[in-house]
Amino acid sequence: MICTIRRFLQQSFRKIWPWRQNAPDHLNFSFCFGDAAMNGKSNTHDGGCYCGAVRYRIQGVPDFSAHCHCRSCQLALGGAFVTWAKIPAGNFSVTKGKIKICEKTPGIRRGFCGDCGTTLTYAADHVVEGQDWSKDAWFTAVTLDDPTIVSPQNHVFVSHKQPWITLPEGAPAFDTF
């Protein structure tokens, strides 16, 4: 049943936008039915960039997520904040394309699609706030095909928060990480 609905939606998509005869893999409509229903693997989740040139897969559900307001993230993403999620590094793999890396600060690498510019990953080679970040894979939560599997726990680096951003009352917020 789900596969029939998926085929119908993909065919409808192609009729509405005929210039996109071959809809990218990331338009698989898993956001409608949940990733588990679409691929039969509740612990496998896919994501990728805006143009579909880079795709990735994670195993499991992120064990931490937060909204980061640091100035570095603001400049790198062009937004007031970004929602990061993390999983063990061994549970993240690129399944299509190649993530381009920018290393402005030694030991810190931001990954993005070289075609459309979508920010995808963040990695650090060292200990940050007492945590060994080299063992984690950080990725932008909204690049998941089903970003609803992520539950951000707090806001970090609110000392850099833009004054026109209002946090929800009672939301856990920290001046640094």
Score class of each variant (00 low, 15 high):
Pro106Tyr: 12
Lys96Phe: 02
Gly107Cys: 12
Gly107Asn: 10
Gly111Tyr: 01
Gly117Trp: 00
Val128Cys: 13
Ala124Cys: 13
His126Met: 15
Cys116Ser: 04
Gln131Leu: 10
Ala124Val: 11
Thr121Gln: 06
Cys102Gln: 04
Pro106Ala: 10
Asp125Trp: 09
Ile108Leu: 12
Gly97Ser: 09
Gly111Asn: 08
Lys104Asp: 12
Gly97Tyr: 08
Gly97Lys: 10
Tyr122Trp: 15
Gln131Met: 11
Gln131Val: 15
Gly130Leu: 05
Asp125Asn: 11
Lys100Trp: 01
Ala124Ile: 05
Lys96Thr: 10
His126Leu: 12
Lys104Met: 04
Val128Gln: 12
Ala123Lys: 10
Lys100Asp: 08
Asp115Phe: 07
Thr118Gly: 08
Arg110Trp: 08
Lys96Trp: 02
His126Trp: 11
Arg109Val: 02
Asp132Leu: 09
Ile101Thr: 04
Cys116His: 09
Val127Met: 09
Ile101Val: 11
Leu120Cys: 11
Asp115Ser: 12
Phe112Ala: 05
Gly107Lys: 13
Gly130Cys: 05
Cys113Trp: 02
Tyr122Asp: 02
Gly111Asp: 01
Ala124Glu: 14
Gly111Gln: 06
Asp132Lys: 09
Thr119Ile: 08
Thr121Cys: 03
His126Glu: 13
Tyr122Gln: 01
Gln131Trp: 05
Gly130Ile: 07
Gly114Pro: 06
Arg109Trp: 07
Ala123Gln: 15
Leu120Ser: 07
Lys135Thr: 13
Ile99His: 00
Pro106Asn: 14
Ile99Arg: 00
Gln131Pro: 00
Thr105Met: 12
Glu129Asp: 11
Gly114Phe: 02
Thr121Phe: 05
Asp115Gln: 15
Lys98Trp: 00
Lys96Leu: 07
Phe112Trp: 08
Asp115Tyr: 03
Trp133Cys: 10
Gln131Cys: 10
Glu103Gln: 14
Ala123Val: 01
Gly114His: 05
Ile108Cys: 09
Lys135Asn: 05
Gly111Lys: 01
Arg109Ser: 14
Glu103Trp: 08
Leu120Pro: 06
His126Gly: 08
Ile99Tyr: 00
Ile101Tyr: 00
Lys100Val: 06
Trp133Tyr: 14
Tyr122Thr: 00
Thr121Ile: 09
Leu120His: 06
Lys100Cys: 00
Val127Gln: 06
Phe112Ile: 04
Glu103Cys: 07
Lys135Gly: 05
Asp125Lys: 12
Lys98Glu: 02
Ser134Trp: 06
Arg109Ala: 11
Leu120Glu: 04
Tyr122Ile: 01
Asp125Tyr: 04
Tyr122Cys: 03
Lys96Glu: 05
Gly130Ser: 08
Ala123Cys: 03
Asp132Cys: 02
Thr105Glu: 12
Ser134Leu: 07
Cys102Tyr: 14
Val128Asn: 11
Asp115Trp: 02
Asp132Gln: 07
Ser134Arg: 13
Ile99Asp: 00
Trp133Glu: 15
Cys116Asn: 04
Ala124Gly: 03
Lys100Gly: 00
Lys135Ala: 13
Lys96Gly: 07
Val127Ile: 15
Thr119Trp: 03
Lys135Ile: 06
Glu129Lys: 12
Lys135Met: 08
Asp132Thr: 03
Ile108Ala: 06
